[in-house]
Design a protein around this nucleic acid. Structure first.
Lengths: 225, 225, 225, 225
DNA sequence: CATGAATGAGCTTTCATTCAT
DNA sequence: CATGAATGAAAGCTCATTCAT
């Protein structure tokens, strides 16, 4: 059931009106769930809110997803799927590792900015100590593409001699993600604490420039700096 | 009331049995609130849970704090106060900016590690778009010490010629905090995604080393590298 | 839903067990609400009391009525519906306006006496400055039958020459209602103040006689007196 | 205690500052109670609301009045006292019974209009089946002045030959009061039902004229009409 | 494929009241 | 004369979920 939800692909056989309507119901419930969970978290979001936002009924959530937790897992999987789809569309010039790395950083920062639900859903999941994703058995499968990309760029740079050989791809990956994620995730308290609105474009751009600089300085060999 | 709570001074005058008991009740409610909110977030944590954890009653929370939101604000203020107290105890050798900066990074990473409630409470607050802290009118006052420390270290390094003059203290501050915060905040999903437990000491140490390296490379002049 | 409740018609089609049960639940909740609100007012009557009196559960009130206020509105509408049903059953001899008027007075006095909930519910509503009935958009529709009856009797009497042409039907209506309502509504404080129990039949009958006399003297022409 | 409150009289002995303040507290609590109970009824009005409206504390209500019910009784007694004070100030021309009766009617209608708390408090009391006033043992003492006035006017009119001898003063009293009380008490639902705002001066005046007419026609002998 | 009905436990909050000092 | 602290019960309402059809 969830497997079907994960693929956005081809109906091989002709679907009747009823089946189509069914898919629509399930999809709109999932979309509504992402929105509501993103806004209020797992605990704050209610089954009722979600079913109403989807113009459906409570009962349908149980019909399609079983219970609230499974719906949340489906929502998590869906946002990860979307992220991977977006990342797969990235066309990196691997011949120029430095440029490619910069591209990756830009992609990550902009994706988080445009998809705040990605951040809030993951926060909610971490608040619950990752217990939902642990049940998903797709966890690694989901993150591997992202790490692979960083890994490949890194290896190319090292092979070329412009990147330091001692940098671990896992650390580099986490650095990029952390700098993008934190800015988005904590923008409200940060804005209050810094007395500066992090949602204005100028502030974001300064941060982006800084992050690219920091990442490159961390990775590049002194000679390539 | 909160003013009293914010100061860590001892009561100079002898307190009667009642007053003492009152302070104890309020304090234990606040402590319990921090624990419960840290574990379950603002929505997930219930007034009942908190009052019971404090060996008190629902009613007392309303007596001392008014409502759930105000209790949450008080909890937020308290954890920030604690953070600032801990940071104030840091003895930095400002004559050696590079070393001092390393100390700051270590402090931040270890503080977040030892105080997961700091991270979860802030996450919960950001889920609610900072609406509670906005009401606290102590926001800036709270974060200024932390930024000041980074700012001073940075200025010293620049004066000495070992730090690059183009780095903004706000960016440097956010970088350090982001790298420490994200590791702690997202350790569950990260562990699942990476297939590696981020809570083992070895992994944490590798990350700490990496972060120090990244921060220094971002800040140091090529010559000082 | 309320439309169905308002009509006193029988369900034409066979109803399944479930539907029947549903109707029963809603109806018994409404009946219980009328009783409880009549006895304790809107504020004094509790959701819990009502649901228990109906052998149901709190939750069902919210399921069928949404909230306490809407339940109260439904109760108000129901008692007005009942009054109108009872009044519609009145067979007035319009050829004898004086007699018909007497009949109307008797009907009103006796109806209030037999249906104290009518009086207490309206009092409760007036305490809240009519805010519930204002939301009901059936207000005028409810009272118009009663006024129409008075109006018609009055017009007949005037046409016949036995009633004074200067009496406004609205004033006459209010007079009759006031004299019946007040006796019932304030019988407890009046009994205490007058030192005489207004609930004894003899006292009621004296009042009834007096009211009929007063109404007729107010309406009849000197010649017809 | 309540006895003292009932009289607005002379402090025989010099009162110290503290005592004065004490009286003020008690009085402002009582005034606040009348306002709050008038607005929300006995059940809807809360001890907290009252004490805050009086700039005092919950505890003080218990100190001065014992409990909520006794406070309500005190409030009832106070509004009756005020009514009697106002009525005692009425200067009736008993030599002209017809005019005097008209004056009484006007007084009652205007008093209810200007003192809606009188009406709502009595309604609240009747909702509770007069159980508070029953405890007050001042009930009759309170209403007797009002009835006495009507009684005296009536007797004078009968003696003069202009009033019908068969009218009972109790019925006449109730008629006047009912017509004034009901208009005020039920003005909200009536306005909704009639589609006409009973609070506009013109409508009130029409009613006043009608009531005077009705009362006189009920009382006057045919000859005196 | 969908729905109306039902459920029990839980939620935050307010209630009137009493205690000790 | 006044106050800060405490209490247990109850309030209105929402929660996730299951039932029968």
């Amino acid at each position: 059931m969830t497997a079907k939800a994960m693929s956005n692909s081809q109906p091989q056989r002709k679907v009747g009106a009823r089946e189509k309507s069914a898919e629509t119901t399930r999809d709109s419930l999932l979309r509504a769930a992402i929105k509501v969970f993103a806004k209020h978290g797992f605990d704050g979001g209610s089954i009722d809110q979600i079913s109403k936002a989807a113009n459906s009924h409570d009962r349908m959530i149980y019909y399609y997803f079983g219970n609230k937790e499974s719906l949340f897992v489906a929502a998590l999987e869906e946002i990860y799927r979307r992220f991977n789809v977006a990342e797969a569309a990235l066309k990196l010039d691997l011949a120029q590792p430095k440029l490619a790395l910069e591209q990756v950083v830009r992609f990550v920062l902009h994706y988080y900015k445009k998809h705040p639900e990605f951040v809030t859903l993951l926060n909610s999941e971490n608040l619950h100590r990752g217990k939902h994703i642990a049940r998903s058995n797709k966890a690694q499968e989901f993150s591997s593409p992202a790490i692979s990309v960083v890994d490949e760029v890194l290896r190319r740079g090292i092979a070329q001699g412009s990147f330091r050989a001692t940098v671990a791809s896992r650390d580099l990956y986490m650095m990029i993600v952390a700098l993008g994620y934190f800015y988005q995730s904590n923008r409200f308290t940060l804005s209050a604490f810094l007395g500066e609105d992090l949602e204005t474009p100028a502030v974001f751009e300064q941060w982006e420039t800084f992050v690219i600089d920091a990442v490159l300085r961390t990775v590049l060999t002194p000679a390539a700096l």
